[in-house]
Amino acid sequence: MTERIPVIEGLFTEGPEGPRLLGSRCVTCATPYFPKSLACHNPSCTEGRMEDAAFGPRGVLFSSAVQNYPPPPPAKYDEPYRPYAVGMVDLAEGLRVLGRIDTPDPSALRGGTPVELSVGHLYRDTEGRDVVTWQFRPC
């Protein structure tokens, strides 16, 4: 079986409850952060104590576009290049996240569509491993 590795360690998990993004939240003002933040950046926050938090899987698509042309480095993709959808998703926890949208018809996506977090293929690395990242799919 092909070895599966995350694009970057520690950004997401695929536990028994399903995929989650690993971030943090300010205990004082409840601002969510992904990836984890050492400090709260909310200028209205008075204290800014941080705790670990997991986000997902439910969200709503704010908007999307299609990356019709191969993006510049440091993006990576399999050859031959296949266009993919990218979107901004508002998670139920109050976090707006960028991610690829896993859909067969990228240009048919519409804002307001309910989506859920998943983990999927990003590219195959030089050692033949399946490099995966967080993404969303309409649900």
Partner: peptide, 26 residues
């Protein structure tokens, strides 16, 4: 910026595309 490009792959025009798409719907 590295995370955004490596983990998702969003060029500048894709970003503008997302904003434009939302406007088209609104």
């Amino acid at each position: 910026e590295f995370l955004r490009q490596r983990c998702v792959g969003v060029s500048g025009p894709a970003f503008w595309g997302m904003l434009c798409r939302r406007r088209m719907e609104d």
